[in-house]
Amino acid sequence: MLNRLTDTLDFQGQALALRSQRQRLIASNIANADTPGYVAREMDFAQALKQATGQLAGAPSLAAPRPGHLPGTAAAGGLGTPLLYATPAQTSLDRNTVDMDRERANFADNAVKYEATLRFINGNVRTMLDAIRGGQ
């Protein structure tokens, strides 16, 4: 019963962890905008979230054959998802593939979505507290 209450929180928690990882990735790209030969990285967020929450078709799932066994979580924190390489829109002479406009847009987009996930979690917590208090 209690784990059903926290199921949605688990999902949002995974999403939040992945969002912060993507934020770090984009920050690395922006930091290396002037490094010669640096190749920009990007992550497939939908894929990573599916993998982190164990919904990927064909993903190995750990069975819990006996009561008392803990359920396995597949690649927590998106560590199992390989990072991709961003394709440069314009080539540069020093082989750096960071597209500053795209990175800035991604950074702002990811920051807003991180905050949205935070609000979902807060709303969830507030709903649960309301239910526990019984509306008093």
């Binding site: 770090r24 690395s28 930091a31 290396n32």
Partner: peptide, 16 residues
């Protein structure tokens, strides 16, 4: 100056 990527622990954290 010449810049160089500097890994900071995780693979996705690349400083300069």
């Amino acid at each position: 100056v010449t810049f160089q990527t500097q890994l900071m622990g995780a693979a996705s954290a690349a400083g300069v």
